[in-house]
Amino acid sequence: MRLQVDNLEFNYKDNNVLCNVNFCIDQPGIYCIIGPNGVGKTTLLQCIDRQLIPTKGSILIDNQNIFKMGRNDFSKIVGYVPQITFESFPTKVVDSVLLGRYPYSKYGYDKNDLDITLEALSDMGILDYSNCYTNELSTGQLQKVQIARGIVQQTRILLLDEPTSNLDVKHQISVFKSLKQLASIRKMVIIVVCHDINLAATYSDKLIVMCGGSIYAYGSPSDIITNNLMKNVYGIDCYVQSYNDKPYILYYE
């Protein structure tokens, strides 16, 4: 599995969002994208997911241009979990997650689809809620429903846009642990947009730091998280400590 992004550029009308984005992922694992708001993290994810068409540059998966792949086949290779969205008309959790099987079962679900769904619900620790309606869940639980929906798509690459933004620390960690497990058991590439730098540094194999529409740094957390980076990317002063070979940020006034 090799995901290669070359010279990617994306403009919204006159607004240049992404420019000269280059990186390559060739090992399964967790890859967190961090960076300040409005820096183009979601835009990058949506380009990789073919929701947005880049103005310039190319995205290759195993040396194949993603825009030349069959659309349905592509949905079996790359999955996307958007930022939290509430359903306009609530459905049962199990039905909601089954929707992720759409690329495989366009006309009806079989027992296999249901088994995969229940497995994902249990991975996310929300199996008990499978028969509840989505509007009866807490925001955090709903977020897990969305992640489960991404999992049942059984893709080799999974993109998640702020999957832990509404979770408390216990559930943040449990989500990252299950993502880590998916990455190692199913050899998946999991790309996560995350605002919690400490969490991202703890669980990701590599960090992608974005700044001003391009990649500022790409590498293992301990190598790239420095005082200097925090100053240049976020414009803040902080301590960077190390514990068990992982960097930790301590903010001060």
């Binding site: 949506q46 659309r71 949905s75 930022q83 359903e87 759409y102």
Partner: peptide, 18 residues
């Protein structure tokens, strides 16, 4: 109807399914 079901879960999700 299937496509409408996915739309219920958000436009971005529908788009990601092609």
């Amino acid at each position: 109807s299937r496509a409408l079901d996915t739309l219920n879960s958000g436009e971005s999700f529908s788009k990601s399914l092609g």
